[in-house]
Simulated assay, not measured.
Amino acid sequence: MSNTLLLIEDDIQIVEMVQNYLLKEGYTIVTALDGLDGINQFQRQQFDVVVVDVMMPKLDGIEVIKRIRETSSVPIIIMSAKDSDMDKVTGLGFGADDYIVKPFSLIEISARIKAAIRRATTYSSDSTSIASDGLSTSGSLLKFDRLSIDLTNFTAWKDGADLKLTAKEFEILRLFAEHPNRVFTKAQLYGLVWKEDYYNDENVINVHIRRLREKIEDQPSTPRYIKTLWGIGYRWEG
């Protein structure tokens, strides 16, 4: 069964180029030429991954991401000509999982899409391990006062309300919650969650920690659960 991808992009040449390439890779592709149509398409069926431009008519990519994140944790990849660190942090901050800068190679975007789908699929099919260094899950329910984490069904809620975490946010939460009081450096977090080498890209980690805190903490600026150890990393205090 092929993976279904929603491509939201107003440049028809890019749409045709990416669509033709990914069709050969075995994907089912649905396209939208503006943000509003992209949201309409997203509401009609289920997708395995969404690829979205930032600068678009009717509804920009950031607003599209915000609306999708209200109801779904589907992997979202931004592809944009805007390549500043602030642009990337903004996109990731509103819930995107990855950011690819135009112009890009078709091989690169294909690899990013495959990686996003693979990470998301891992959460729904593998409840036995999070990394190859011996960190493992118990397939159970963890409770921390008003916060509950279901490791088997990959869900979390606070005061009975679903937290609507993205795949990476849940993996970070699971890693912390299963290993309370253990200190994780940023390099360790990146290696365990992104499963890639860490090149001191603190922005990516900082944005995801901030978004996770905003969802689980009563006061994100003075967190109860995810503590910062300045110059070292982070630690979970249940």
Rank of each mutant, 00 (worst) to 15 (best):
F104R: 02
S127L: 07
D126V: 12
E196K: 15
T137K: 00
R211T: 13
M79V: 14
T228P: 10
G35A: 05
D159L: 07
A81M: 05
D60M: 04
I39M: 13
G231C: 10
K82S: 02
D197P: 07
R146T: 13
Y21W: 09
R211E: 10
K66E: 15
N200S: 12
A115V: 11
F42R: 00
I205N: 01
I14G: 01
M56H: 03
E214P: 02
D97F: 00
E196F: 09
T4G: 05
L6S: 04
Q43I: 11
Y198A: 07
T185C: 03
F170N: 06
R210Q: 10
I107C: 05
A111F: 03
Q13F: 08
V51E: 07
S2K: 14
D201S: 12
D48P: 11
R112F: 09
A187V: 13
A161D: 10
R119Q: 12
A116C: 04
V52M: 03
H179C: 13
V18W: 00
A81F: 01
D133S: 14
D10R: 08
I12W: 12
D126F: 07
R224M: 08
Y27C: 14
V183E: 03
D11K: 04
I209R: 01
D97K: 02
K82W: 01
T155G: 07
N203A: 12
I12V: 12
R118H: 13
L163S: 11
T121A: 11
P57V: 10
R112S: 13
D162E: 10
Y190V: 12
A161T: 13
S140R: 14
E70Q: 15
W157K: 15
V193S: 05
S127K: 07
N40F: 14
A177G: 01
I107T: 14
T222E: 14
R210P: 04
